[in-house]
Nucleic acid binder design. Structure first.
Lengths: 332, 332
DNA sequence: TTATTTTCATGTAACGTTTCATTCGTAATT
DNA sequence: AATTACGAATGAAACGTTACATGAAAATAA
């Protein structure tokens, strides 16, 4: 009879196997150990159902196999998808994830960073908004959609190219006069380039465009007003609209319906993100798709690479266009 | 000049403040300490910018202030919302969350449980499918939507009442002949009661009903076939449909559109969950809303209560009906 | 004033690992 | 066969806390 009150420790395994503590540690960590020893230890581990105590491990080795993910929320599809894919990638690498949902609140972001650090995470991936986050020197950090200075790498999709692609698509699909709509909210550094890309695309295709950009506090109705002002005799003067996110596109589509405009016959709409209904179905609208899975992988790769480059890279991943019912279908 | 290579420890604080190690520990943990001592210690903590090492803490106290959340994925709106609210609730209680996205895979679920346990979490909240999960005796576990035996508490919304409510609503809104549609996938114990509730509701309102229940592997098209079979002269024989989830309702709505049926004029549709577009807007369809925030809170409360009741409760939270455009509006 | 109780900071012993200097046993060299 | 070299298991020390037994000082009682 053994006292089985608490979980077995390495010491127990060592005793059971008749080897030294250090040997057990080596076996557990996959370090080279003589075959007969390894066998005996593995047997003992089986028999006692031993599991390493990650807290002891973390304390001694100061490597915790845990990373923190800072994200505004887990509800908006783009974020939810990011969380999902990052989790998946981490799992493959045997890393755990501390989820930090920040509500895009600068204070909360900083708080979570402190928490993560005192929790000795091996690194942090963050989609944050606080312009002056303080990150301890020693903690690897990878930013999403926002370049945060020379010490921190950033992963983003190619927002400029995406904007450009949207313009080109609209041109290809026969548009002559288009609009760019954007609302400030939740757009950090990199996604701002969508605008520049779109302008660039319009210019190169000689596509006439107008912009309507709302700030964070502005009432949504201004978009409706804006669109109304461009209706003459029941006909909207735009035949194409590029919305800075699918989220916005969804709202605009509702307004267009209300104003009696047919999509895509009267006006075509392209969004940005690649949001899908319920996560597994069709796109919610025609859209510029961000490569979420690749973004996730890249973040993890950058975070966990063991030899940090002197100059952390700014990684820009390619986007693509996807049909989602709000544009005319292309002839094949 | 101090060597500031590594983070300051309690020992450093103790030296700085000229007190004993134990005293610092007490201050940090809010235990009673003489006022002058407390002050000196707090000053030293400020000065050195000391942060507790949660790994040392976890090792010694075997209380880690961390819980694990097992969830199939973070993408489907109901799950995403659950994650969000649980995170929020935990934050208020100063707990951290280890996110475990399982893909509803039994093996992965078990793997994550083992991981969580060796990570010495203070408890686990799980929405799982594996019928014979092995959970170590010592780890508090709260299940969502699935009662897992006498040792484990379960939180769920009132699925029976929800089904009943759906039937009653349809009756109130003038339906005479309704259908219940369900696909096996992702329905654990408790949500199965939606069916029984719906039947009960139909019977008590003398509402004629039919059911079409698909198993997990079955092709989705069978729903289309089923509905087609019930069309005579362009008219669907059902004037109301209850779908077991909003997810399903969304698909059914597409089929109905394809079949030329007008919603809600020809046929009214009610889903289940309370899914909203993009997390912040209107409901995706008329639906029975699960009180996600309350579910989240209840889970955390049950998990973290310090005196476990002998018999873990099965908590059933009330649902409500919400209009979402796929039913006739009620007259006020 | 002395004896007795109470209060409270102190310091040491774990907690379960990893690491590294040590040592033991064996193989290679002459 | 004797010496040296090598490889590999060993075991003690340390990681940064918490908990508990200890003892000193202050407060009360006699």
């Amino acid at each position: 009879m053994k006292k089985d009150l608490s979980a077995p420790t390495m010491k127990d395994v060592a005793r059971e196997a008749g080897v030294a503590l250090g040997t057990v540690s080596k076996v557990v960590n996959g370090l080279p150990v003589g075959e007969p020893y390894r066998l005996r230890v593995e047997e003992a581990i089986q028999k006692l159902n031993y599991q390493v105590n990650s807290y002891a491990q973390g304390l001694k080795a100061s490597r915790t196999h845990t990373i923190a993910l800072l994200i505004p929320n887990t509800i908006e599809p783009f974020f939810a998808s990011l969380v999902y894919h990052i989790n998946l990638t981490l799992l493959k690498r045997k890393y755990r994830m501390l989820l930090c949902s920040t509500d895009a609140d600068p204070g909360m972001e900083q708080e979570y960073i402190a928490m993560a650090q005192q929790n000795k995470v091996d690194g942090i991936i963050g989609l944050t908004y606080n312009p002056n986050l303080i990150i301890e020197e020693g903690t690897p950090f990878v930013a999403i959609d926002r370049s945060m200075g020379p010490r921190i790498s950033c992963v983003t999709s190619d927002n400029f190219a995406g904007g450009q692609l949207a313009a080109e698509k609209l041109a290809d699909l026969g548009c002559k006069n288009v609009a760019f709509l954007r609302i400030g909210s939740s757009l950090t550094n990199e996604p701002n380039k969508r605008k520049a890309g779109f302008e660039n695309g319009c210019l190169s295709r000689e596509l006439h465009y107008e912009m309507k950009i709302l700030n964070d506090g502005d009432p949504y109705e201004e978009f409706e007003t804006f669109l109304k002002e461009h209706i003459q005799g029941g006909k909207l003067s735009f035949d194409g609209i590029f919305c800075v996110t699918d989220h916005l596109a969804y709202r605009i589509l509702k307004i267009l319906r209300k104003l009696g405009q047919k999509v895509p016959e009267d006006v075509q709409v392209i969004g940005f993100d690649g949001t899908r209904h319920f996560g597994f179905q069709e796109y919610t609208c025609s859209t510029i798709v961000q490569p979420v899975s690749e973004i996730a992988q890249m973040c993890v790769d950058l975070l966990l690479q063991d030899n940090m480059p002197a100059k952390p890279p700014l990684v820009c991943l390619p986007v693509s266009y996807a049909y989602g019912g709000t544009t005319l279908e292309e002839e094949r």
